[in-house]
Design a binder for these strands. Structure first.
Lengths: 145, 145
DNA sequence: GGGGAAGATGAAAATGATATTCAAACAAAA
DNA sequence: TTTTGTTTGAATATCATTTTCATCTTCCCC
């Protein structure tokens, strides 16, 4: 299996785009993290390694990384789009505590299968899906009282 | 069961907020629709009935209607938040054609049950969820070739 | 290994959705 | 009715993201 760096380089070459130090740095920074970073947070991290980098480059590169399939946008309903590395990772959904923000990755084959079936029943070809479960985790429930 | 208008009036009274003609007009306009309106679209419709209404009032009222449980925000990944009336409606999810925008409401008890189970397995109390299936509808698939 | 065209970059300005400010108008409780 | 706190519309601000533009860089060909 190709490394994410290779995948990205190939993707760029395919489109006659260029591999630059900035693009490499942004990808590397993303891969080092297993958090779900917002563009703002990523920009801060990247800036520590290269003082001269610009926000626009971060946004531009995130767009490319998304198109190349290396990362995926997440929507935790907090106003910013976050991203997570997705290359070589199994697909999963998210279970989010609305109180403390805790975030658990979940995967359920029963649900995945039913999604396919549902789409097919309506004549759709399923391309992707988003599922977010919002609730309150055990700890927060205890703290609440 | 109380009418949406009553629910809204009670909600406002509870919070020491006021029932105004603008708020009534916005709610009525929303209820007449069974489309998924963006604030912009709603503003246009409302403006036809009351030339003097402002955008800000539409945004402010949508926020209140959401808090009162009468409407629900939807995320079709097209950059705008859309809303649908949800009072007295059974919960459902959405199956969206990424090509033509067609939007089918779906409900599946197998999935709903598994969601509850999954949350419980992680010690969570499930409060709500979002599930969007994105794909291509039969018609668009044919057109494509 | 340099020359040049196509792309990429950073800074600043533009955009687009949504939120806030403010002075004037209004709803509702007394 | 008077009063008080709320709401309104218009304009302005905000916030995330995108675009513009002049300058720099990559990479392909000789």
């Amino acid at each position: 299996m190709k490394s994410p760096q290779e995948v990205f380089a190939d993707f760029l070459a395919d489109r006659n785009l260029k591999t630059t130090p900035q693009r490499r740095l942004i990808l590397d920074t993303l891969l080092k993290q297993n958090d779900h970073l917002s563009p703002e947070e990523l920009y801060a991290k990247v800036k520590k390694r290269d003082k001269s980098i610009g926000q626009a480059t971060v946004y531009r590169t995130l767009k490319l990384l998304n198109e190349s399939g290396l990362i995926e946008p997440l929507d935790f309903a907090d106003g910013v789009t976050r991203y997570e590395p997705s290359y070589g990772e199994e697909h999963h959904d998210h279970l989010i505590c609305e109180r403390c923000g805790k975030n658990i990755e979940i995967l359920d084959t029963v649900i995945e299968r039913r999604q396919e079936e549902l789409a097919a029943e309506h004549g759709f070809t399923l391309l992707r899906h988003k599922m977010y479960l919002y609730g309150m985790c055990g700890e927060c429930r205890k703290k609440k009282q």
